[in-house]
């Protein structure tokens, strides 16, 4: 688990994250949400975890991972409140979130981070290791465990529900 004092993070703050994060995008979210709804066991315990909305390219031979930037977060909005309820601690992506997600972030004291959008080659430099851990049949949409070091993040929505896109 990542040692982060979620409640001390403030919207707009830039941080560098080291530890384990988990990729998940559209189809993985759909499956996780279905499992939660049907009281099935999850292939990944979401409690205290950070999900990264990312589907990397194939891994070149001499690298830990291929290009791995964030995908549009709002497509995950319909599933996010359910995942937060199941214990998810944080999310990394790009772009704005809907009202329901912001409310759920506040309710469950979670956090939403942004990272450099469209910079998959650069971000791959902060990933030390990537291993598929669930839904391997989904290919680029499988859940990968990424070990990251100094991964650059900006707090997009903090645990009080303050939204970086709301203050302009």
């Amino acid at each position: 688990m990542i040692q982060l004092k979620i409640e001390s993070l403030k919207t707009g703050e830039k941080i560098f994250l080291s530890g384990k994060i988990y990729t998940a995008r559209d189809q993985a979210h759909k499956r996780l949400a279905d499992a939660i709804k049907n009281n099935k066991r999850l292939p990944l315990d979401l409690r205290g975890k950070i999900i990264y909305y990312c589907g990397p390219t194939k891994t070149p031979k001499d690298k830990a991972i291929g290009s791995c930037g964030p995908t549009t977060s709002s497509r995950m909005d319909i599933f996010t409140p359910l995942l937060l309820k199941a214990g998810l601690m944080g999310m990394i992506g790009k772009g704005n979130r809907c009202k329901e997600v912001i409310q759920a972030i506040k309710k469950y004291k979670a956090v939403y981070f942004l990272t450099y959008a469209g910079c998959g080659a650069l971000l791959s430099k902060y990933v030390l290791k990537a291993i598929p851990v669930a839904y391997k049949d989904l290919g680029p949409e499988a859940i990968y465990e990424l070990e990251v070091k100094n991964f650059p993040l900006i707090v997009g929505i903090d645990s009080t529900g303050r939204n970086i896109y709301g203050k302009k």
Binding site: C54, G55, P56, T57, P60, K63, G66, S67, C68, G69, T71, Y116, G118, C119, G120, A121, L122, L123, S124, K125, P152, I154
Partner: peptide, 28 residues
């Protein structure tokens, strides 16, 4: 300031992609 930081990252990303033969973006 933030915008300049992001643009710097975007430029660096393109340079890394070209040099290391990595996709500019994971969405190819």
């Amino acid at each position: 300031k933030t915008a300049k930081d992001v643009l710097g990252a975007i430029i660096k990303n393109a340079q890394i992609a070209r040099k290391e033969k990595l996709a500019i973006c994971q969405d190819t």
